[in-house]
Design a protein around this nucleic acid. Structure first.
Lengths: 203, 203
DNA sequence: ATATTGACTATTTCTTTTTAAAGTTCAAAG
DNA sequence: CTTTGAACTTTAAAAAGAAATAGTCAATAT
């Protein structure tokens, strides 16, 4: 059974997630989160050392959910391409739904990419590992032949990220508020890239 | 024969390029450029409407040189992959040699990507067109089969850009001062991506 | 011992003001 | 048509002050 402490932590994470996803990290104050839970600000610091840790914990939670979703799908895998597409779509959904949550990390990227990497780094690594797994499954299936799976997975990840950067750099103001249209364009480019990429790994 | 005006414009461009490439756009003043040429600041404004136009003109010049280099190479083309690699390398060389020149455009990207697009947009489009040409040659050679060349060229361009973003986001401070090491890592990843990508376009 | 708080302090962020520097214009001269 | 010195305007950096918010801690309650 979960300890009392864990339950409270979970409650805090839940409320914080809502605030962060709605208003973003910067425009959410610790006082507000405390008020939502109707207890004191100081108590937040009893459960989380600082705001940044709270944010990171929320991120981790969201990302783990996403990874779990993909993980489950992988058990019913049919083709490598379908797996990759599922992953891209799941990722995009997560991004769409929690845009303001990620926005903070993205804005860090603007100022200092390496600072951002401390936030999103573990995220990227999990994603890369996920792609690794998918590729390995493909190798077993005989769909894919690849000597450097880790490297290829990273290539794919970076390439897909490039679609995002490329599309967003074109639109006016789109970096601040990616329109649904932007999301669609990114997604479709990502799918096409994935298709070509996987084709390039065929035996 | 070139007109006198053109010669002077070229001289200004030359001096401005040196300053921009060395100290960057922001830390170069019109007064300094004028002084280098030992004529008055006001005269610069006789040849160029404003500083930004001068910067853009320099960029265009550098980019055109680069494009020309690739253009020449394409006449001696052997395989599509070699052409792409030549292009990637030429691009990287240009970037390395004129880093501070591009830095201004990159910094615009940090603040407002769409603003940057006004600077680098034409650049990207030329690059994309170049990739288009290469792919079309590949189609004629029978190396490549592709229904949507324009789209594929953009995919490749964005994908390669992703290698850059991906590598740079990892290193500490690397965005401000990409180390030679960073350049090498980007280049090698770009080459590998290009290889897989082109393989994916084979008949 | 663990959980909780109010009151306090320390930082960060935002605004405003100021000042210097750099971009830009223009009438006049070569 | 070119070129310039001097004046003008705009931008950018620095300083200062105020407000908001992150973070601490001794005291209290369970």
């Amino acid at each position: 059974m979960p300890k009392n402490v864990d339950i409270k932590r979970a409650k805090i994470l839940d409320v914080a997630k809502k605030r962060f996803a709605h208003f973003g990290m910067a425009k959410t104050t610790m006082a507000e989160i405390a008020k939502d839970l109707s207890f004191s600000k100081a108590l937040l610091y009893y459960y989380f050392p600082d705001k940044h840790s709270l944010y990171t914990a929320v991120m981790e939670h969201v990302i783990n959910d996403m990874m779990q979703k993909v993980e489950n799908y992988l058990t019913t895998i049919t083709t490598v391409e379908k797996a990759v597409i599922f992953m891209i779509e799941t990722r995009m959904d997560t991004f769409r739904e929690n845009y303001n949550l990620f926005e903070y990390s993205s804005s860090l990227f603007m100022q200092n990419p390496s600072e951002m990497y401390k936030n999103l780094g573990p995220f990227f690594e999990k994603e890369r590992d996920q792609y690794c797994r998918i590729l390995r499954i493909g190798i077993q299936n005989g769909e894919v032949i690849d000597e450097q799976v880790d490297e290829s997975a990273e290539l794919l990840l970076f390439g897909l990220m490039g679609m995002r950067a490329g599309v967003l750099s074109k639109g006016v103001n789109s970096f601040l508020f990616p329109s649904p249209n932007d999301f669609d364009r990114i997604l479709s480019k990502q799918k096409r890239l994935a298709h070509i990429f996987l084709r390039g790994l065929r035996p």
